[in-house]
Design a binder for these strands. Structure first.
Lengths: 220, 220
DNA sequence: AGCTAATCATACTAATCAGTCTAACAGATG
DNA sequence: CATCTGTTAGACTGATTAGTATGATTAGCT
């Protein structure tokens, strides 16, 4: 990733098509954010502004013409990144599935994020920087976690197959066990140290929940 | 926490009782590790050696007479810290309890670590530095997580009240939902953003597992 | 063609940090 | 009392970093 272009009059910018100034600014901003994203996700907040500029293929000065300082860049970046993950999860057409198929699909979608390097790195970054940037954790919780749990809670409440006494607690347990699986397997490298297939987790989780729901309904 | 002692001939060392050289060295080492522990857990690996020396009440040179460099100090420290948490969990007398009481007690013990600032900070540190120090994650997984899950798996297997098809997966789900609860509530500050009592989680988790176990046994 | 604004490479400042060096000093031992 | 070892405070080095400054170059606009 070393950049050693030495020609002083080079424009390393690829993709130069017709651009008026406003959309060029938008592209530059985008270019910076892409580079900063990769660099922050790889190196954490301690990534240097020089490294970010190099990765983005942009002069350092340009960084500072789009963002006041490192912290602002980081905040804007994480904001956008979290926004990008908001939509993963319960889509309307999923709700038409029978209960078991719905739960399986939901779990599969949640765990499919394991394969997304950006998601895994984001998790590590949010948790790792939660002392220095509590606001970042808060955005993560309120934008990603809380809505996901709320939707699952609502689904449990509305579904007569899932008559639990405390739907929110059940939703948190289900969601938490999956997120922790991602943390253990991907963030911490447990897939090498203590591997287990995601199917086994999904199957057991669904078994437990559905069996418990039956028993719970029966004992009323 | 500012240190501004200016007297050049001061020994700020409290607790000076009869000491031969070997035990004085042990005490110094201990003093350093205590200070380093607090500083690393508060500030992450980016804590400065000057700050550690100050927090330990020791000259920076003394750090380097006990440890070769920052990384060695960090590694020795985390090794000892993780060792310290190994014993939390299943004690022999717990096993004599009836199933439900056992599970409740186990969950309570696990979640009681939420109140331990060192444990919570350790979690954040292990996860946050898992890219830079994969070995640290590995020690965490193999010394803390894996044995805990193995013991719970074994308990499930041996307990006829808990006839699950995949005991290990069930153990991972139970353990994971509790660890994730700690991460969400304490590490990420969810106790302010999306609070819920630990009793609700424990109750629902036990309900689900026991109900599912009954149903599972019934359907065999 | 000529002007303007954005971007470039590069160098700089001031601060911080890991690690080393020095010289002084305290406490135990002989 | 003399010596030796461990510790101290503080200065220092070399590297890195956030952020700024500069002066050249380029692209878009009229």
């Amino acid at each position: 990733m070393a950049r050693s272009l030495r020609k002083p009059t080079a424009r390393p910018n690829a993709l130069v098509v017709a651009h008026d100034s406003t959309e060029r600014a938008r592209d530059k901003r985008e270019q910076i954010m892409q580079g900063a994203l990769r660099t922050f996700l790889s190196n954490g907040y301690s990534a240097s502004m020089d490294a970010i500029a190099a990765e983005a293929g942009v002069a350092k000065q340009t960084l500072y013409s789009y963002f006041n300082n490192k912290e602002d860049l980081f905040a804007a970046l994480m904001d956008r990144l979290l926004e990008h993950f908001v939509d993963a999860g319960m889509t309307p057409e999923l709700r038409t599935l029978p209960t078991q198929a719905f739960l399986r699909k939901l779990a599969q979608i949640t765990l499919s994020q394991m394969d997304d390097w950006e998601y895994v790195s984001m998790l590590r970054l949010v948790i790792g920087e939660s002392a220095r940037f509590p606001q970042l954790s808060e955005v993560y919780l309120t934008r990603l976690v809380s809505p996901g749990i709320a939707k699952l809670t609502h689904y449990i409440k509305m579904n007569e197959d899932l008559a639990f006494g405390d739907p929110e607690a059940v939703a948190r347990i289900m969601h938490g066990s999956l997120i922790n699986f991602i943390i253990a397997q991907e963030v911490l490298g447990g897939k090498h140290t203590m591997p287990i297939s995601r199917e086994r987790i999904i199957n057991s989780l669904i078994d437990i929940v559905l069996f418990a729901a039956q028993q719970s309904a029966q004992s009323r």
